[in-house]
């Protein structure tokens, strides 16, 4: 008897309102087709979605917590990327 475990898949669901597919969790399935079927049973029992993506978990590359500084710190000092950085006089009106 084989003891091969079904591989892990990450599941993404698009909700009702034209939103992006959002990660909702993971599950085991032997192949993509079964992964979609399982995702339907596990993650959309209450009409949570109109579309499902499944991706083999092993194909996901994740940033590591130790890279947090080099990756995200540079954005910290660049507050001018936000509209509120600029003072526009009230006389100008809505902008």
């Amino acid at each position: 008897m084989s003891k091969k475990e079904w591989p892990l898949w990450e599941v993404f669901i698009r909700g009702q309102h034209g939103l992006n597919h959002r990660h909702v969790g993971s599950l085991h399935a032997p192949d993509a087709e079964m992964a979609i079927n399982h995702a339907r049973d596990v993650y959309t029992r209450r009409r949570e979605g109109v579309s499902i993506w499944v991706v083999p978990s092993r194909d996901i590359t994740a940033s590591s917590p130790s890279e947090k500084g080099p990756l995200f710190d540079p954005a910290e000092s660049k507050t001018y990327r936000h509209p509120t950085f600029f003072d526009i006089p009230d006389e100008v009106g809505k902008m």
């Binding site: 475990e5 892990l8 969790g25 599950l27 049973d41 596990v42 029992r45």
Partner: peptide, 26 residues
């Protein structure tokens, strides 16, 4: 039937959470 199916789903959510800690569901 729907409730019992939910319980299976709850088990699966939790096994998935445990698996992120380096142990497999099986």
């Amino acid at each position: 039937l729907a409730k019992v199916q939910d319980e299976a789903g709850h088990g699966l959510y939790l096994y998935s959470a445990a698996e992120t800690l380096g142990v497999s569901r099986d």
